[in-house]
Amino acid sequence: MNLQQKLNAWIISRIIELSINHGISIHELARKSNLSTTTIQNIISGKTTPKLETIASIAMVLSGTLDKFFETVDDNIAAEVHKYISNGYKL
């Protein structure tokens, strides 16, 4: 599994985790984040790789900030992302 796949899998699990914890349905998450239900469904099913602004919209609803959304990211994934970005690459 490459870095993008690892990060996407983590984002999907985080969206599901926080949605369950806050009792927010896909429809409610879509409405509150100004995204379509289809977009949320496609992200959760892995059909779509979300852009940062999409993740930020979802994060604001589920955790208040992007930092809080990513606060539990696996250290290995975080280190890989940091190394990848510091080498001048884009995700």
Score class of each variant (00 low, 15 high):
residue 61 V to G: 09
residue 59 A to R: 03
residue 44 I to D: 02
residue 39 T to S: 11
residue 22 H to S: 14
residue 61 V to D: 11
residue 21 N to K: 13
residue 43 I to T: 09
residue 51 K to Q: 14
residue 31 R to W: 01
residue 39 T to M: 12
residue 55 I to P: 03
residue 25 S to Q: 08
residue 41 Q to Y: 05
residue 32 K to Y: 03
residue 33 S to I: 06
residue 47 K to A: 13
residue 37 T to P: 00
residue 32 K to W: 02
residue 55 I to L: 11
residue 20 I to E: 15
residue 45 S to P: 00
residue 52 L to W: 08
residue 32 K to F: 03
residue 58 I to V: 13
residue 34 N to F: 10
residue 24 I to N: 07
residue 27 H to Y: 09
residue 59 A to F: 04
residue 52 L to R: 09
residue 39 T to I: 04
residue 53 E to I: 06
residue 42 N to V: 00
residue 40 I to N: 02
residue 27 H to A: 15
residue 42 N to C: 06
residue 51 K to T: 12
residue 49 T to W: 04
residue 52 L to A: 14
residue 45 S to D: 09
residue 46 G to C: 12
residue 63 S to G: 05
residue 59 A to W: 04
residue 48 T to E: 13
residue 33 S to L: 09
residue 36 S to G: 15
residue 21 N to I: 02
residue 52 L to F: 15
residue 60 M to G: 00
residue 22 H to L: 15
residue 53 E to Y: 08
residue 57 S to N: 14
residue 25 S to M: 09
residue 48 T to K: 11
residue 39 T to E: 12
residue 31 R to V: 04
residue 51 K to A: 13
residue 55 I to A: 05
residue 53 E to V: 04
residue 24 I to E: 11
residue 45 S to Q: 07
residue 31 R to I: 05
residue 57 S to A: 12
residue 48 T to D: 09
residue 29 L to F: 02
residue 60 M to I: 12
residue 28 E to Q: 14
residue 38 T to H: 04
residue 30 A to C: 08
residue 33 S to V: 07
residue 52 L to D: 10
residue 43 I to N: 07
residue 34 N to Q: 13
residue 63 S to C: 10
residue 49 T to Q: 11
residue 47 K to Q: 14
residue 23 G to F: 02
residue 23 G to L: 05
residue 58 I to N: 04
residue 62 L to D: 06
residue 62 L to Y: 03
residue 46 G to F: 09
residue 46 G to W: 08
residue 21 N to R: 11
residue 25 S to V: 06
residue 63 S to W: 01
residue 32 K to Q: 15
residue 21 N to W: 00
residue 61 V to S: 10
residue 35 L to E: 10
residue 48 T to Y: 07
residue 36 S to H: 05
residue 53 E to W: 02
residue 30 A to T: 09
residue 20 I to P: 00
residue 35 L to C: 13
residue 23 G to T: 04
residue 60 M to P: 00
residue 30 A to R: 01
residue 21 N to V: 01
residue 35 L to G: 02
residue 23 G to W: 02
residue 59 A to I: 07
residue 20 I to C: 05
residue 26 I to C: 03
residue 58 I to K: 03
residue 60 M to S: 13
residue 46 G to S: 12
residue 31 R to F: 08
residue 52 L to V: 13
residue 31 R to H: 10
residue 46 G to M: 12
residue 59 A to P: 03
residue 59 A to D: 07
residue 43 I to C: 08
residue 25 S to R: 03
residue 36 S to I: 09
residue 20 I to F: 10
residue 24 I to F: 06
residue 38 T to F: 03
residue 29 L to I: 05
residue 48 T to M: 14
residue 60 M to K: 15
residue 37 T to D: 13
residue 45 S to T: 05
residue 27 H to F: 07
residue 47 K to S: 10
residue 50 P to E: 12
residue 60 M to Y: 08
residue 45 S to V: 01
residue 56 A to P: 00
residue 22 H to D: 13
residue 26 I to Y: 01
residue 28 E to I: 07
residue 49 T to C: 02
residue 47 K to L: 12
residue 46 G to P: 08
residue 40 I to Y: 02
residue 34 N to A: 10
